[in-house]
Design a protein around this nucleic acid. Structure first.
Lengths: 152, 152
DNA sequence: GGTGAAAACACTCTCAG
DNA sequence: CTGAGAGTGTTTTCACC
């Protein structure tokens, strides 16, 4: 798909605040309401905009103890990889899990209440998974930048 | 703040799809439109719901080359830390940056088009920052799980 | 806490140009 | 792309359980 400057600006506005009305956006973009409406529908229907979501304040819901956990598997057999990934999917504490290159196989982002919950999670959930060779956790000290928006 | 089961379900629904009407939500929750409306307003006004955003498909916008980069500073002087964080904030390619405990000081998530853009970013942007001792990058092979929703 | 209804308003969506 | 109109959802208030 091809994006002109108006599309790029529109996508940035919607990534910052999805509850703006087409009227507000039409003013910011210098277009008519209908023109903006049709551009948004095109971006939605083509799948460029995948979904609209509410973001929560991690402090207010007591999930601001964030851990980035590196995981290494004992073997890279297809069966082991698939089983590990399947089990990770079911853990609500794990909000992100990326299969990566390098010393470790996976990097997980885990959102918890405090270090007691972290200990509980590691002992009763993560380390009970099969085929894990080792893990290495980094605790988040502060969130320097954390955006869902991608600038085009 | 205190959340009952209805609030928890409501927050989950809104984290999955923020464009649902209060009518749809009232049906799913077994409440009246007014009751749902007032709960949502309360969650918005208290800051539990911090914002509503559009999420984009990284493949469709050609930013699906994701790198998780570990950065170590040469010294932890307050001045160096603040300068590094300030500069990171201005880089649009960096969508997330966490100050963490452990061997490295920061973990960054960087979204780019391809490995050529990665090379360019490292050479012309990241490694030109002051006070960086070392970096270690892991390329994302696959996204096992990537959600913005936190289950309460 | 909750319901249901009514009214005013704003927005979405379609259509002719 | 624009402007206008019809349809729909939002928002508020109210009496009441």
């Amino acid at each position: 798909m091809n994006f002109d400057e108006t599309d790029k600006n529109l996508l940035l506005f919607l990534q910052e605040d999805a509850k703006q009305t087409t009227k507000e956006l039409s003013y910011k973009l210098g277009l008519s309401v209908t023109a903006v409406y049709e551009r948004i529908k095109k971006l939605e229907n083509s799948g460029v905009i995948s979904k609209y979501v509410a973001l929560l304040d991690k402090h207010k819901i007591e999930r601001n103890f964030v851990v980035l956990c590196h995981v290494k598997l004992s073997q890279h057999k297809k069966e082991y990889v698939l089983q590990f990934e399947k089990e990770i999917m079911t853990l609500p504490e794990v909000t992100e899990c990326f299969h990566v290159s390098g010393d470790y196989d996976y990097i997980l982002k885990i959102c918890l209440k405090d270090i007691a919950d972290y200990r509980n999670f590691m002992v009763t959930k993560l380390t009970t998974l099969q085929h894990i060779a080792s893990t290495h956790s980094s605790f988040m000290i502060s969130e320097v930048k954390n955006t869902t928006a991608i600038v085009l």
